[in-house]
Design a binder for these strands. Structure first.
Lengths: 252, 252
DNA sequence: TGACATTTGTTCATATATCGCACAAAGTAA
DNA sequence: TTACTTTGTGCGATATATGAACAAATGTCA
């Protein structure tokens, strides 16, 4: 790509939008400039542009994003067949298991939820399509990282903030790489309260007809009701069933 | 705002992202140019910028959005307190009613879902935060339009594509304006299969402590199980209860 | 309170980058 | 082949970013 094939004003504007996610809903020009590491004058122009287009409100002091911003993410969710394809299968899976079922893909060091069928709320955080979790300590994340080559996975771990969320959280890269190897061999990943106390989950990869992993699906359950040791026998058959039902639908 | 406070490269780029929502997942440069009514060279630069930043993939012929684009909408959902504030109340409401409960705000002629607690799937379409429905034929839309002045509401109806989705759909602006007046007086709106055959819903406004309507919440139910005539007695008390519980929480 | 320091928002001139046109090249379909 | 569509590129006109300077607001301290 040539230098001139890059619209830096556009790139700067996207950076400004993302700055809102990192903090609160209201940002002053100076705050946005600090977060984005852009010049105040430049950020101001981007924010005024967002306001002019209705993507943001401006009260003379603070900018806030408006729901119109959701059109951008929605452009992906409605345009990509994967979420719509997975949804009915997740509904069925969730109903059979009596627990929440989700699907996600990898984006950098995070997994991003692209579809979800929730039964009852067991997590303290609220997950919807677009929600993100660190890949290294999520069952779907383990499955998606396991699908990469070891050097790719190691590179992502190196960029990840390997935080000790609970006493169970594995944060040693070598240990994680070894776990990915096991996941590849056995075809599933189980998380026992590594993200949040009280929450277990089990995930399997979703492959297309070329054998490329395009997403992961999981079932999450409260540890109090379903001990990690029982996750496999209870839910792996259901997950495998869903996995098999999806395979022929995923032409690349 | 001065002419020079507008970054047209940024505005053009956002238009390009939205173009993906209107059709399928893959867009060529020429297709995107047609949809956005921008110059091909401009669209090409925007798309290459998106690809360079990882928001899009490019195979040399077609561009597709990547899940990274969800970061933009997520910047709103995670930055705005309203969705997180409403979610637990919707969960409770949904459980008490045994039906799906949702919250939405107005964006132009559409309502945009910002939170949802689904019980079982009754609609053919899959609703998640970010999903949009035309306001004129949705119960939450009626409530949100009723909160505007009549001239504002009329202006939005004038811009809406008043489509006859089912035999029940009301499409006459004067009739709709009269219905808004009733909604304002009685404090709720009921939709009887105007959007989709088999689906009824009832909505109430959510006001902040200044009495400004900031969102709407609803309960949707299959018409086969809950006739429209029963919606009010069954669900209005639950909705009013949730509405009252939320009021003190909504400081502006 | 008032004086001073600091932060924030805005403006401006100018160097620089982008836009859109026109044309060239490469595919496509008949 | 011809006709048509799509994509890539060079260039002049035009729009934007930059950083400094200024104004306004805010905070600090005696």
């Amino acid at each position: 790509m040539r230098e001139t094939d890059f619209v830096s004003g556009f790139a700067r504007g996207l950076k400004v939008i993302e700055a809102f996610g990192e903090t609160r809903q209201r940002l002053s020009i100076a705050e946005a400039a600090k977060l984005t590491e852009l010049d105040r004058a430049t950020v101001r122009r981007s924010l005024l542009t967002l306001a002019e287009l209705g993507y943001a409100d401006y009260d003379g002091k603070f900018f806030t994003l408006t729901p119109k911003i959701l059109r951008l993410g929605h452009a992906y969710l409605s345009a990509t067949p994967l979420p719509a394809l997975l949804q009915p299968h997740l509904d069925l899976l969730s109903e059979k298991a009596g627990q929440s079922a989700s699907a996600s893909v990898l984006d950098g060091t995070d997994i991003v939820y692209i579809a979800r069928a929730s039964q009852r709320r067991v997590m303290s955080i609220n997950l919807t399509p677009g929600s993100r979790l660190p890949a290294y300590c999520a069952s779907m994340g383990r499955v998606l990282l396991a699908a990469l080559t070891e050097s790719e996975a190691r590179a992502i771990l190196a960029r990840s903030e390997l935080k000790q969320n609970t006493a169970n959280t594995r944060t040693d890269p070598d240990e994680l790489i070894a776990e990915f190897r096991r996941v590849r061999t056995e075809g599933y990943a189980i998380i026992d309260q590594e993200l949040e106390i009280g929450l277990c989950s089990i995930a399997v990869p979703i492959d297309n007809d070329r054998g490329e992993t395009v997403a992961a699906i999981n079932i999450g359950a409260p540890a109090a009701l379903v001990p990690a040791a029982e996750m496999k026998e209870r839910y792996l058959p259901l997950l495998k069933e869903t996995q098999a039902a999806l395979r022929p639908l995923l032409r690349r």
